[in-house]
Structure formats: structure tokens, C-alpha cells
């Protein structure tokens, strides 16, 4: 019975994946770019979910993890001798700089873990927010190294063109999703969720809460780093404004909320929902209407969050279950 269900689910996912992989052949190129953005947002949101959705430690420093990976890789791969010039621009190949960027992001995740040892709730929110603002401040005074407030642009991209980048983003999203999904349904995932419910009881039961939290921060740093490094190489530019954007942070968190926190699959649904809602509103409010579509999107997001705090994924699951029966 259970095996049968698993098989059913597997085919459903395979179908969705094939559909996604074939989508560039029947949707216009503009939409393929939108899907790429949705895929990266999904990676960020899943990475936020494994930490905040599971353990309840709400991180406002996620853009910091993403930015650290992006900046590290951008600076190291930046061709030397090109303006803005700095001795730190080594022009290294990206197959070296991206892993270095990911490691930097993991280390940043571990730094955020230090306040996570002692502080919880609003305190942790504040520390992560402050850490992210310190990061933004440092990036905007980074001189020639990070290009200060102007940022860096023109560092190497991985592939030219939309299609290779599309498949890269699909592969990245699927691998991140698979890893986090495996972790999520393992004992570790269940224990991480238990931290959210009652951290003290968990430690009385003899579980090493510190180690568990450390794993969550590590995984979050790893996946945010992978997403961040590839994302900024895809864009080909990075600036304090784009990397530490508050709107990006809100999109990441809202994706997890709308899709369903603590589910890993939910944030993907949420990320597609968020990206396509924002894109779908674009023709209605062209030109200077950026603010109006953000307002409409945020109001809608807020209402969905307040009315359906469990998110869309559990709802869809329920719907499927009743239909298959």
C-alpha cells in the first residue's frame, strides 16, 4: 500500500520534471528566464526552510549567506587589470572560485550559528538582521575590491545564452531539493522539527541539540552558497543593493510561507508562485509601476500567510489524495 503510494508519487514527480525540462521548447524565451529566476529563488527558499522552517530559528541573514558566496566568487574570478582594479582580483577560473564561494558561505553560516547557540526568537531575528546590515555596510565600503556601492560587473559567466543556464538552474534546484528532502525525511529532519516544538525537552531526552542546530546552519549555508555563487555568475553582476536586497529576503521567506514551511517541496511551489505573480503583474503596471506590483504582491502574500499559515503544499497534497482515491 505504502509502496504503491510512493511509486505513484515518484511518477508524478518524474512527470513534473520532464515537463519542466521540456518547457524551453514550447514557452517563449522570456518565460524561460523567469523560470531560471524561479529556480534560484526556490534554491534560496529551500535553504532558508531547512534552517528556519524546520528549527524555528527565523533567519533574516539569508541574503548575507547568498551575498558572501556571490561576492567571494565574483572577486576571485574578476579579471585582473580591468577597472575597478585590485590586487585581489585574481582572475581564477570559476570552477575554483565557486567552491571557494560556497565554503565562504558555509563559514558565514557557522558564524550565524554562534548567536544561535544562546539567543532565540526576536533576539535571533535581530542578530541575523544586524549581521546582514553589517555585511551590506562592509560591501559598500569595499573600495576597489568589491567595487563599493557600484559593485562588480563583467566577471565571467558560466554559460552564455538562456538555454544552458536554464538546464544548469534545473539541475542545481533538483540536486539541492533532493539532498534537503532526504535530510528532511531522515531522523535528523524529525529532530530539527522537534527543536522548533520544544528545544529544552529535546535536550533533556539526551539529544545533542547543539550538534543538530549546527547541522541545520551548515546545510543552510551550503545550499545558500551554491545558489548564491551560481546565481550571481548567471547575472554577471553584483552590488550591495542587489545582493542584500530586502525584497529578495522577503521573496525568499514568503516563498517558504506560501509553499509551506518545513516541507522543502513547498518552497519550490512558493518560489514559482512568487516569481510568476510578480511577473504576471508586470504588464498590468508597466514602467514606474514597480512599487504598485510589489504592493499588490505583498498584500496578497500577507493575506495568504495569515489565512493559510500551513501553506499551499499541504493543501495540494490533500487535494491529490482525495482525487486519487
Amino acid at each position: 500500500m505504502n509502496k504503491h503510494k510512493l511509486k505513484n508519487n515518484f511518477f508524478l514527480w518524474l512527470l513534473l520534471l520532464v515537463f519542466l525540462a521540456l518547457s524551453p521548447f514550447f514557452v517563449p524565451e522570456g518565460y524561460v528566464r523567469v523560470i531560471i529566476m524561479a529556480n534560484y529563488l526556490a534554491i534560496f527558499s529551500m535553504s532558508w526552510d531547512i534552517l528556519s522552517g524546520y528549527t524555528g530559528y527565523i533567519s533574516f541573514g539569508h541574503t548575507l549567506l547568498i551575498a558572501v558566496a556571490g561576492y567571494t566568487s565574483a572577486i576571485l574570478s574578476y579579471p585582473p587589470g580591468v577597472w575597478p582594479h585590485s590586487d585581489l582580483h585574481l582572475g581564477l577560473p570559476i570552477y575554483i572560485t565557486i567552491p571557494v564561494g560556497v565554503i565562504a558561505s558555509i563559514l558565514t553560516g557557522l558564524i550565524l550559528f554562534v548567536p544561535g547557540i544562546k539567543t532565540r526568537g526576536p533576539y535571533f531575528v535581530l542578530v541575523t538582521l544586524a549581521a546582514s546590515m553589517v555585511g551590506e555596510g562592509l560591501a559598500s565600503i569595499s573600495g576597489n575590491v568589491g567595487g563599493a556601492t557600484r559593485g562588480l560587473f563583467g566577471f565571467p559567466t558560466i554559460f552564455p545564452g538562456t538555454f544552458p543556464n536554464f538546464y544548469l538552474s534545473v539541475v542545481l534546484m533538483c540536486s539541492v531539493c533532493f539532498i534537503l528532502w532526504l535530510v528532511g525525511r531522515s531522523d535528523i529532519g524529525r529532530l530539527l522539527k522537534a527543536i522548533n516544538m520544544d528545544e529544552d525537552s529535546l535536550s533533556y531526552l539526551g539529544k545533542n541539540v547543539l550538534k543538530l542546530k549546527c547541522i541545520a546552519f551548515l546545510l543552510s549555508g551550503l545550499t545558500a552558497g551554491i545558489g548564491g555563487a551560481f546565481y550571481f555568475h548567471y547575472l554577471g553582476s553584483i552590488s550591495p543593493h542587489s545582493a542584500f536586497s530586502f525584497l529578495l529576503l522577503i521573496e525568499i521567506i514568503l516563498s517558504a510561507f506560501i509553499g509551506g514551511m518545513g516541507t522543502i517541496i513547498g518552497p519550490i511551489i512558493g518560489a514559482y508562485f512568487v516569481t510568476f505573480t510578480l511577473e504576471g503583474l508586470r504588464p498590468l503596471f508597466p514602467g514606474i509601476g514597480a512599487s504598485s506590483r510589489i504592493i499588490i504582491f505583498l498584500v496578497a502574500g500577507l493575506i495568504i500567510y495569515l489565512k493559510k499559515p500551513q501553506g499551499l503544499y499541504p493543501l495540494i497534497k490533500q487535494l491529490l489524495k482525495s482525487h486519487i482515491k
Binding site: 524555528g56 512599487s291 504592493i295
Partner: peptide, 26 residues
């Protein structure tokens, strides 16, 4: 309406802040 749920308070007021920011930009 949402008192007693710290996560909801934090997010709702944050989203509200950004809505106000965008409304003023507009």
C-alpha cells in the same frame, strides 16, 4: 488579531513596513 504568535507578529509587521516603503516610493 495575531497576538501571541511571535512569528506572525514579526512577519506581518515586516511585510507591512515594506508595503509602506513601496507606497511612499509610489
Amino acid at each position: 488579531k495575531i497576538m501571541g504568535n511571535p512569528m506572525k507578529e514579526i512577519f506581518s509587521t515586516l511585510i507591512l513596513a515594506i508595503i509602506v516603503e513601496q507606497a511612499i516610493t509610489l
